[in-house]
Each structure stands twice: as structure tokens, then as C-alpha cells.
């Protein structure tokens, strides 16, 4: 465990900093992070609504998450924790979103399909960080020092609204993809797949197969 490399990045992250991130590196962040997921993508990309704030120079980190937050009587927010949501569902929006916002770090749960790193993120100079666990809501909640802004709260609800968080020592995250499009998840998956055949050895197949069932254990479920 002591062998894992750890870095702390100031945001917005520079191209040089991003280039140093290798799969498996542990990362902590300082600066501003914003949330956007299907509700926001739908509005901005599909419905062509303008972004509610200029992200350029402010934040280039898109967190796929939603907070456990409630509004206090004075209008301020109480953010208990934040936990990422599975990112592969947002694959179809990534190209447009990165182009539109200049986002260079995507954070979420579980990574994106391997091809997305090669074809979309890496060519744009962007990398993917995964949350740890994934249930580290309390640790990440601690790292949020302030809710800087929130947009579309009434329309999209707490989970889907676009939140801007000021963060300090926010993490840990683990680097999944680098600028070459390598993926930690995919590399580990490949290694685990090699052992799967042996696990099933000697177990006879069920009498009735299910429609659409495959026996290829290397198929990505994403």
C-alpha cells in the first residue's frame, strides 16, 4: 500500500499536471469542482440551453455525483456527503461536453468504456478519476468547504442539479485512465477474466438457457 503514488492537484488542473497522472495514482484535489449528469447534459447538449456559468478558468473537473444535501432556512446548504454515480451511462454525451466546457478531469464511479478513453478522453487531453469504494461519501463530504453555487435546483432536483463545490484536500480518488487511453479498470478486468474459466470448471450448465445469454465471460457489461 505504501507503494501507491499520491499527488495533490490545484484546480483548474494544468495540462502538465494531468500528463503526470498514471493509472493507479491516488489523487487529492484543491479548488472548484462541478457536478453534471444526465439532467444537465440533456439541457445543455440536447436542448442547447446555455451553460449557467462560465467554467473556463474556474473549474475543469466534472464530478458525476449528487450530494446528500438539504437547504437550511437561511437559504444556505448543508452538504452531508457526496457519492459518485456510475459514469458509463453518460458516455454518449462526453465528446460534446468536453468540447463545450474544456473539462479535463472526469470523476465518477466505475469508469467509462475502454474505447471512450482511447477515442474521446485521451485525444481531448482528459483523464478519468474514480472515487474509492465507492461509498466514501463522508470523506468526500469533509473535503467540501463550501457550496459556491447551484443551478437548476428547482427544475432538476438535488441529485441532478449543477453544483459548484469549493474543495480542499478532496479525495481520495484513483486515476483510471491516462492521456494514452490506458485504463486501470480494464487492465485489472483482463487479469481477472483469465481466471474465470477455472472457476466454472466442472459446474454443469443449467437445463434451460436464458434468451440472449452469452457464455463469453470477457464481455463488458457496460
Amino acid at each position: 500500500m505504501s507503494e501507491l503514488k499520491q499527488v495533490r492537484l490545484s484546480l483548474p488542473a494544468t495540462a502538465e499536471d494531468i500528463a503526470t497522472l498514471e493509472p493507479g495514482t491516488i489523487v487529492f484535489l484543491d479548488g472548484v469542482v462541478y457536478t453534471a449528469r444526465e439532467g444537465v447534459y440533456q439541457k445543455v447538449i440536447a436542448e442547447r440551453k446555455p451553460l449557467p456559468i462560465k467554467l473556463d478558468g474556474l473549474s475543469n473537473v466534472n464530478f458525476h455525483c449528487s450530494p446528500a444535501a438539504s437547504r437550511n432556512d437561511d437559504g444556505s446548504f448543508n452538504v452531508g456527503g457526496v457519492t459518485a454515480t456510475a459514469s458509463f451511462r453518460f458516455s454518449k454525451w462526453m465528446q460534446d461536453w468536453l468540447e463545450l466546457t474544456g473539462t479535463r478531469i472526469v470523476i465518477g464511479k466505475g469508469g467509462m468504456p475502454r474505447d471512450d478513453y482511447k477515442n474521446i478522453l485521451a485525444p481531448m487531453g482528459a483523464v478519468y478519476l474514480t472515487t474509492v469504494g465507492y461509498g466514501t461519501g463522508a470523506l468526500l463530504g469533509r473535503g467540501i468547504t463550501k457550496v459556491r453555487d447551484v443551478f437548476w435546483l428547482d427544475e432538476l432536483g438535488i441529485a441532478q442539479a449543477m453544483w459548484l463545490f469549493e474543495v480542499e484536500n478532496f479525495g481520495p480518488f484513483i486515476v483510471d485512465s491516462d492521456l494514452k487511453g490506458n485504463s486501470l479498470f480494464a487492465t485489472h478486468g483482463d487479469q481477472i477474466n483469465k481466471g474465470l474459466g477455472a472457476l466454472y470448471k466442472g459446474l454443469k450448465a443449467p437445463a434451460l438457457r436464458r434468451y440472449g445469454e452469452t457464455d463469453n465471460r470477457e464481455d463488458e457489461v457496460l
Binding site: 500500500m1 501507491l4 491516488i26 450530494p67 456527503g81 457519492t83 469504494g133 461519501g137 470523506l139 484513483i174
Partner: peptide
């Protein structure tokens, strides 16, 4: 590393009285 981070997370949750997972 992941398991140890989870142990830290539960300590943070109990210590700060905040939910352990936001989901």
C-alpha cells in the same frame, strides 16, 4: 487501499455525524 479508505470513511461519518454514503 480501498478497504482501508472505507474504514477511514466510517470513522469520518461517525465522527462528523454525516452519512457514510451520499447515495
Amino acid at each position: 487501499f480501498v478497504l482501508k479508505t472505507m474504514l477511514d470513511n466510517w470513522e469520518a461519518a461517525s465522527g462528523d455525524r454525516r452519512p457514510m454514503c451520499a447515495d
